[in-house]
Simulated scan of single mutants.
Amino acid sequence: MSTESQTRVDDDPEDLPDLQERLERTPRGRALISVVIVVLLGTVLIVNMPDSITKRALLHAAAPVANVVGLDQGWAVYAPSPRKESTYLEARVLERDGTTQTYPVPLQHGLSEYWDYRWQRYADTLLNGPENKPRWAPYAQWVAAQDRAAGHSPTVVTLVNISSVSQPPDAPTPRTPWNEHPFFSIGVGS
C-alpha cells in the first residue's frame, strides 16, 4: 500500500473535506454552485413578479423549483392591499340529546404553531371561495367522527365562519365586532 493511500485510510473522518469544500476546489464544482445560485435567485424573482404575461410564461419553469425549496409563498398579505378580514372556522355539532358541542380549528401557540399551522391554512381554504364547497362535507363528516370518538351522538354538523374586519390605525376600535355566519350544515346521524 502506498504512503498516500495509507494516510487517507488513517485520516480522521472529521478532517476529510466535506462536499461543499470538494465542490469549491474544482472549476466544475464552482460552476455548479453558481448555476444553483442563479436558478434560486431567478426563481425568487419570477415568483415575486407582479402578474404579467412574462410571469405567466416563466412560472411553469420556476414553479417546481419554488415548490421543492419552499419559495412558493404569497406576499399579498403584506402589500399592496393586505387582507383586512380575520376569519376563524368553527364546527358546531348538534347532539341527539339536543346539546351542542363546538369544535374550533386548532390554534396553537408558541413553538407548536409551526407544525400545526396546516390547520389554519386548511380552515382558510374551506372559508375562501365557493370552489372549495366540495371540501365542506368531508370536513363536517370528519368532525362528526371526532365527536363520535369522544363518546357523543352527533346528528347535524354546521360549519360557521366567524369574522371581523381590521380597522385603520386611527379608528376608535381595532376591529369591527365579530360576526358569525353559518355557511354549511349536514346531517350525520349515527
Rank of each mutant, 00 (worst) to 15 (best):
M1E: 11
S5G: 09
D11P: 01
P17S: 08
P17C: 03
D18Q: 10
T26G: 08
R30W: 11
A31K: 13
V36K: 10
V39T: 13
L41K: 08
G42S: 05
T43F: 07
V44N: 01
L45M: 14
V47M: 04
N48G: 09
P50R: 06
D51N: 15
D51Q: 14
D51K: 08
D51A: 15
K55V: 11
H60W: 13
V65F: 02
G70K: 07
Q73K: 09
V77F: 07
V77L: 12
P82H: 08
P82C: 10
K84Y: 04
S86N: 11
E90L: 05
R92H: 03
G98T: 09
T99V: 04
T99P: 00
T100H: 03
T100M: 05
P104S: 02
P104M: 08
V105M: 09
V105R: 04
P106D: 09
P106I: 13
L107T: 12
H109Y: 09
L111A: 14
S112Y: 01
W119S: 13
R121I: 05
Y122R: 03
N128Y: 03
N128K: 01
N132G: 04
K133H: 05
P134C: 06
A137S: 06
Q141S: 04
Q141C: 02
Q141F: 01
A144E: 06
A145W: 00
R148C: 07
A150F: 04
T158E: 09
L159C: 01
V160C: 06
I162D: 09
A171I: 11
P172I: 12
T173E: 11
T176K: 02
N179H: 15
E180M: 12
E180A: 13
H181R: 14
F183E: 11
I186W: 02
G187V: 09
S190F: 03
